[in-house]
């Protein structure tokens, strides 16, 4: 099975939008009446200072935070958390399952049929052919995150939510995984929370900066060529510089 086979699978992406999103932690109002639009088939990177609520916003869309205010969500389903695939900073591989079984975790949890052929193909496409039966403890950090990426793709959801997916990896491994993810997630609607301006500049179709309390979103321009972009190209380095200046200018709350 080749890479292109998966792209032709269903799960057509569509615009996702969130209106009136509000989230508090204790007495702190993270954001109020926030609007977020994600365009179909595009990768949106979300940056901003630590603690501003980026991960919380992503978790809200993932259905992992309770909705505290009337929120209008239009996406793959009418409520957040349905029909999404989620990938976190930690690989979250279950140590007692093999790489292949971890990729098939979704069907195991839902008790549905397991498409082993597709899972094997995905492991191959993330460069882990021959490691199917290996347990996570025997894999390197980069390999584990590749398995996590394959598990995310296995879910085959139109909306993919990634929370600092590569931030625990070394620079070269991170770059390789960004290329791989950009390639494999090309037709999905993707939201990536990241702290790494270079990551955003390389893989984003759109870049949003989240700042303030309550937080607001604003869009900043991206380099014109399609992702994944060459990290050494002039346009990418310039964009990274601009983005760093933007982020450095933000007053960090608290």
């Amino acid at each position: 099975m080749s890479l292109t086979d998966f792209r032709n699978q269903p799960a057509a992406s569509q615009n996702v939008s969130l209106h009136g999103a509000t989230l508090r932690y204790g007495s702190a109002l993270l954001f109020e009446n926030l609007t977020l639009n994600l365009l179909a088939g595009q990768t949106t990177c979300l940056l901003g200072p630590s603690g501003v609520g980026k991960s919380s916003l992503l978790r809200l869309i993932a259905g992992l935070e309770p909705l505290t205010a009337p929120t209008i969500f239009t996406g793959p389903e009418d409520t957040p958390g349905k029909n999404i695939a989620y990938m976190a900073q930690q690989d979250l591989l279950l140590p007692w399952l093999s790489a292949l079984e971890n990729v098939l975790l979704g069907s195991r949890l839902r008790g549905g049929p397991a498409d082993r052929m597709r899972a094997l193909g995905l492991l191959e496409s993330v460069g882990l052919a021959g490691h199917e039966t290996v347990r996570p403890a025997k894999l390197s950090g980069g390999m584990r995150q590749r398995v996590a990426l394959a598990r995310t793709l296995m879910e085959d959801r139109p909306l993919v939510l990634m929370d600092e997916p590569f931030s625990s990896l070394d620079a070269i491994t991170r770059m390789n995984l960004q290329d791989l993810a950009a390639d494999l997630l090309r037709d999905k609607t993707v939201l990536v929370v990241t702290h790494d301006p270079m990551e955003a500049v390389r893989i984003a179709d759109r870049i949003l900066i989240m700042q303030g309390q309550p937080a607001e979103l604003r869009e900043v321009p991206v380099a014109p060529n399609p992702p994944p972009r060459d990290p050494a190209s002039r346009a990418v380095l310039d964009a990274q510089g601009d983005l760093l200046r933007e982020l450095a200018a933000i007053e960090v709350p608290g």
Binding site: A62, A85, Y86, A88, L92, L105, L109, R110, G111, L161
Partner: peptide, 17 residues
Amino acid sequence: EPNWIDLARTMQASPWA
């Protein structure tokens, strides 16, 4: 690990699963 449970919830797993 709470993040495992979060991941399982995004996969529509029942509490029993």
